[in-house]
Simulated scan of single mutants.
Amino acid sequence: MNARTYLIAAGLVLTMALTGCSTDGSVTMFSSGYGTTKDAGYQLPAIPIAKVPTKYHRQVVRYETKEQPGTIIVNTDEKFLYFVMPEGKAMRYGIGVGREGFEWKGTARIAMKREWPVWTPPAAMIGRQPELAKWRGGMPGGLSNPLGARALYLYNKNGDTGYRLHGTPEWNSIGHAMSSGCIRLINQDIIDLYSRAENGAKVIVM
């Protein structure tokens, strides 16, 4: 390796370090993007990302689909959410999904996007967990709110599905079936997805 080639290679490594990502073949990892994050007056704590399996870290992957860029595809078996990008790529996020009896699938669209959303537990959930009745009128957004830092509201031809793509303070639920049907992401990931996804975007849950 001559001096010029060495300098170019060193510069590439430095650039990747500064942007918090690493590249492995066709995969670009963002494992360094889970530090303490200040957002809208809140300070999200750092995620101990080393405790989360690497496959669930945010990353750009090769992904062949006939769906248009901007489409969101959720694979509940794999516990992955794909945001379709041009040129056969997708941003992939690890997710938590509905536990047994709360699974769902279908096609919807993002009708609303909310930052630090209010959470209102459904009547059926209050019936199962009476202690949630105090939030019947809505739990204000915040660090302990179950919807986390962002929520994308899913509607279909019949209106509100009741399901959301949202953040969660329970980072250790990623990769598991633990929710009441909604698709949950690490807060740092839902902030990233929120910045990419547009109102009206197609969402396919497999």
Rank of each mutant, 00 (worst) to 15 (best):
P130G: 03
G141V: 02
S195F: 05
N75R: 03
E78R: 08
D192F: 11
K55G: 06
D24Q: 11
K66S: 15
G142Y: 01
G106C: 01
W119V: 08
V27M: 00
K66F: 12
K89F: 06
L7S: 14
L132Y: 08
Q43M: 07
H176A: 11
K55M: 09
N2E: 11
M91N: 11
Y155P: 00
L185K: 05
V203P: 08
C21D: 04
K38G: 12
V118C: 07
A50L: 10
R196W: 03
I174M: 02
Y82H: 08
P86T: 10
L147E: 08
I174H: 00
P130N: 05
T65W: 07
V27C: 01
K105F: 12
V27A: 00
P122H: 13
T71F: 00
R99S: 14
L44F: 05
H176N: 10
Y93E: 01
H166R: 09
D192P: 07
R128V: 01
T76V: 04
M139C: 08
K89S: 06
P45V: 11
I8R: 14
G137D: 14
Y34T: 03
I191W: 06
A46I: 00
K55H: 11
I190R: 04
R92E: 09
L147R: 04
E198N: 05
R184A: 02
G88Q: 13
E67M: 07
W116M: 09
Q188R: 09
S195C: 06
P169S: 10
Y163L: 12
